[in-house]
Design a protein around this nucleic acid. Sequence first.
DNA 1: TTTGTTATTGGAAACCATTTTCAATAGGAA
DNA 2: TTCCTATTGAAAATGGTTTCCAATAACAAA
Lengths: 173, 173
Amino acid sequence: MERLFLLKMVFINKSKVMEKEFERGHHWCRGRVKGFGFRLTLGRDAVLDVLSRTEDHLSAEDIYIRVHETYPAIGLTSVYRTLDMLVNIGLVYKFDFGDGRARFELAEGPKGKDHHHHLVCTGCGRIVNYRDFIDEEVALLKKAEEGLSEKHNFAITNHLIQFYGLCEDCRNK
Amino acid sequence: MERLFLLKMVFINKSKVMEKEFERGHHWCRGRVKGFGFRLTLGRDAVLDVLSRTEDHLSAEDIYIRVHETYPAIGLTSVYRTLDMLVNIGLVYKFDFGDGRARFELAEGPKGKDHHHHLVCTGCGRIVNYRDFIDEEVALLKKAEEGLSEKHNFAITNHLIQFYGLCEDCRNK
DNA sequence: TTTGTTATTGGAAACCATTTTCAATAGGAA
DNA sequence: TTCCTATTGAAAATGGTTTCCAATAACAAA
Ligand SMILES: [Mn+2]
Ligand SMILES: [Mn+2]
Ligand SMILES: [Zn+2]
Ligand SMILES: [Zn+2]
């Protein structure tokens, strides 16, 4: 917490350019990692960098391969360990889209949450992020969460919505 | 199709008792399996029987163990194969609740669909079936499906909603 | 009922994403 | 710079699921 504040203080004395770079990259994640008492290692930083530069839903191996390009020393094991930690502190979401491997995306960008749900093509595995009905969906989910929490004595922390179907390509085949 | 009709004809000449037994058991599934051109084997019948007698979300091994009690000759491999087939013909749903194994439930009872969604306890893995907001949820999902189908050119066939949280037991620990 | 065809089976081995183990290394507070 | 120990990479283990293949059983036809 104090760490995040310190970074902000620095910005006030630096140029607008640097602030823009901060917003673009994953630098804002670093304070979060350290805030939880974890060491910010080259591998962890590289994994965050890869995740922050894509809208895709990468598997552990996808991430391993991409990180390898700029930091060849990394091992697949560490990618798994890093992802596990990032999921635990809530910085990353872990999904199962039914293709036998876990897939990951950053839970939050520099501009805050970018809540969306997913369309999954059962033909080719394509994943589409959509935000179209998010507001209505979230409103209903919130209401349902309250009702369900009460009735079933559950402390609900999270939800998952996915639609399955065939994308245009797969339909025309 | 004709096969189902034949079964109905038989009932007219049989007792009410037998009709009740039919409604209770999984007999109605059999026509479905054969209707798709699959052989109705002892193993497949036993798997359907286990699935039709529970509200739980069993793993392949759970089912294997239960089937074993009445039909010890069955192999785990066949349970996997049978479940795969039942999912393919739409008689069974396959879920991933995040505990590393697939879980299954009958998609439809003798009285038709019994649509519900799930509450998942991230502490102990408990799954709760709920029907409380199903109508509203399904209404919204239907609307969303239409919008999303059009906008993203997806032929949506299915959806998934799950809430994650802590059950009462896990909260008090 | 018997027969013939072949879909289905059980068991063993293979598969493969993920986890564990362990000695070597590097982050970062002092 | 030093020291402590969290973190690492490589190799091996794990465990759910799939593949392989010869034996078997479902069931249409006779
Ligand atoms: Mn996404
Ligand atoms: Mn259920
Ligand atoms: Zn597709
Ligand atoms: Zn629980």
